[in-house]
């Protein structure tokens, strides 16, 4: 095993080009587990810890360019306003120690369906900035997950950052685990209201071979909200609409039975989380509307 320690992003890209099977390591919270337990013996470990810009973020007009290695604890602390869904998701990641090390780049690189960040990224809308010596491309998050623990990265590419749309409305994130802290998701759900486009986006984790969106549920809710004039009248979403949305989210799942939970439970729980997060975000939206109106 070789340990490559590039001092800059350019060196990192060159190293990855020279050694396409090199395994990038940043927070180490996935890679080191595999090494410690002899599940993986890569020829090269590519340490990204010296590439300072990976740990930085820039808040732009439309989106946040979030460095791949920005630790979850910093997202929780500093990006709660811009990326509320991702900040909530970050808070559910493992333990404080892990949140101090792990970042979104690791979740994306590993592409486990149980990665906590995925549903929040799917719901917010995001693009993955994949870079190689050949150049840079932005991969829409919807196209990023290609299979169980597989993603759209080419062998010579590294994740530089993820561009996440800044929240234009309330976002929520829920995760079911069988413990009250430090737990891998049995299933997880992210929801983002986008009042500017009058759309709703979802993200579901651990309930299908890849993280997914519940597109039919989104479409249903988008039209139900539109038809009912809800975005304008700020009324409570009718229980039947919420239920139908929840059922469609559950139906979007394609889960398995495993040691963490049954497929049937995962479907059920996604439905419950969908209904609850819709209620929470919508209440928040209505509250914000009233405040705005009151101010105006």
């Amino acid at each position: 095993m070789d340990f490559l320690r590039p001092a800059s992003w350019e060196e990192a890209l060159a190293a990855k080009a020279a050694h396409p099977t090199a395994v990038p390591i940043a927070g180490g919270t996935d890679v080191m587990v595999e090494i410690n337990f002899d599940h993986r013996r890569p020829d090269h470990l590519l340490d990204l810890g010296r590439v300072a810009e990976l740990g930085e973020w820039e808040v732009g007009e439309e989106s946040v360019r979030l460095g791949a290695s920005v630790p979850y604890s910093r997202i929780m602390e500093h990006l709660r306003a811009e990326l509320p869904g991702l900040a909530l998701a970050s808070h559910t990641v493992a333990s404080p120690q892990i949140r101090n090390r792990g970042g979104v780049g690791g979740n994306l690189g590993t592409a486990s369906p149980a990665g906590d960040a995925h549903p929040a990224l799917l719901a917010a809308g995001a693009e993955v900035e994949a870079v190689s010596v050949r150049g840079t491309r932005l991969i829409p998050i919807d196209d990023f997950y290609t299979g169980v623990k597989r993603n759209a990265l080419a062998p010579d590419e590294l994740i530089r950052a993820v561009h996440v749309q800044k929240a234009d409305g309330p976002q929520q994130y829920s995760k079911v685990g069988t413990r009250n802290a430090m737990v891998i998701a049995v299933c997880a759900f992210g929801l983002a209201l986008h009042p500017e486009t009058r759309t709703v986006r979802t993200g579901i984790g651990s309930a299908a071979p890849t993280p997914i969106r519940a597109r039919i549920a989104e479409e249903f809710l988008n039209s139900a909200l539109e038809e009912g004039g809800f975005w304008d009248n700020g009324k409570i979403v009718t229980p039947s609409v919420a239920k139908q949305f929840a059922d469609l989210c559950a139906a979007a799942c394609n889960p398995i039975d495993d040691v963490r939970g049954t497929a049937s439970y995962r479907r059920h729980a996604v439905g419950v989380m969908a209904r609850r997060t819709l209620t929470w975000t919508w209440e928040s939206y209505r509250g914000a509307r009233h405040t705005t109106e009151g101010a105006a």
Partner: peptide
């Protein structure tokens, strides 16, 4: 609350 940091309920259920 049940679920703890995972933010599954704010009292519902």
């Amino acid at each position: 609350l049940p679920g703890g940091l995972s933010n599954t309920t704010h009292g519902e259920g």
